[in-house]
């Protein structure tokens, strides 16, 4: 007879959320390869995407391990439907122009870096190890996106206009990163993940400071667009998965 597998659902969800954010954002950013406005940015975008794929592999492997049903990182990436994805809505927003891609990255990195720093002291040591590994490259990502947001915000008339438009469109999605639900509260209580409201306070303070330097103004009071963490996605995710998963769907079990 089979033994019932007992999954620690809170940690499973945490690993999926961290892994799916990295995976979906990487899939978006990777689409710039060969299309960026300058060569250096093309290389930077491809490298950021690659770093995020590396992190995806660690988080989704952990998710599979926690779940205990034998699913690998690849199974989780290529064989789940949109409703089973746990990334925030921000990650799946379309690339738009370079300003949109950059602003999306900035809003994500500015949360990702302090989140990973806090996860380094998780009492679940596998989570702490992955965070310790990921944090090193993510602070580098943040350095780049912060620098570019300031330079293009406080730049030419056109670059400022485009950056402001991107901020207006994307800021409403930023709130989901720090909005805690029951799973986040349980994780914080068990000291596996930080209290998201604490991360949120320093996130907003950081955004105000940096966007101020960039001469940009966020719609601070805009209603938060959320749902992705619980599997309720925008239409965009379906298109991403269709492209990302078609091979494994059309040829199940195909190997490199």
């Amino acid at each position: 007879m089979t033994t019932a597998v007992k999954t620690d659902l809170a940690i499973f969800e945490l690993a999926l959320r961290m892994g799916d954010n990295a995976l979906i954002l990487a899939q978006r950013v990777g689409a710039w390869c060969g299309h960026a406005p300058v060569l250096e940015e093309d290389i930077a975008l491809a490298n950021v995407a690659l770093d995020l794929i590396g992190q995806t592999k660690m988080w989704l492997s952990l998710a599979g391990e926690i779940e205990g049903r034998g699913r690998t990182a690849d199974d989780l990436a290529f064989l789940r439907d949109a409703r089973a994805y746990r990334n925030v809505l921000l990650a799946e927003q379309p690339n738009g122009d370079f300003a949109h891609t950059l602003m999306r990255q900035f809003l994500f990195d500015a949360w990702h870096h302090p989140m990973l720093l806090a996860l380094k002291s998780s009492c679940e040591k596998r989570v702490a190890y992955i965070a310790g590994k990921a944090d090193k490259v993510v602070r580098y990502h943040l350095e780049r996106s912060e620098d570019l947001v300031i330079r293009l915000g406080d730049g030419s008339e056109e670059s400022r206009e485009r950056m402001q438009a991107a901020l207006d469109a994307l800021y409403p999605f930023a709130g989901e990163l720090c909005a805690a639900d029951a799973i986040d509260s349980e994780l914080a209580e068990r000291r596996i993940a930080p209290d998201l409201s604490g991360i949120g306070e320093s996130y907003i303070a950081y955004l105000k400071r940096t966007l101020g330097e960039a001469t940009l103004n966020a719609p601070w009071d805009a209603a938060t667009r959320k749902g992705g963490k619980n599997g309720m996605h925008t239409e965009e995710l379906g298109y991403i998965l269709a492209e990302m998963q078609w091979l494994q769907r059309a040829y199940p079990g195909a190997k490199w």
Binding site: E40, E41, I43, A44, N47, V48, L50, D51, V137, Y140, E143, R144
Partner: peptide, 13 residues
């Protein structure tokens, strides 16, 4: 520094 990223993930230009 010309760019933060280079020919491989570990290098900058």
């Amino acid at each position: 520094q010309v760019a933060r990223f280079g020919s491989t993930p570990c290098k900058a230009s």
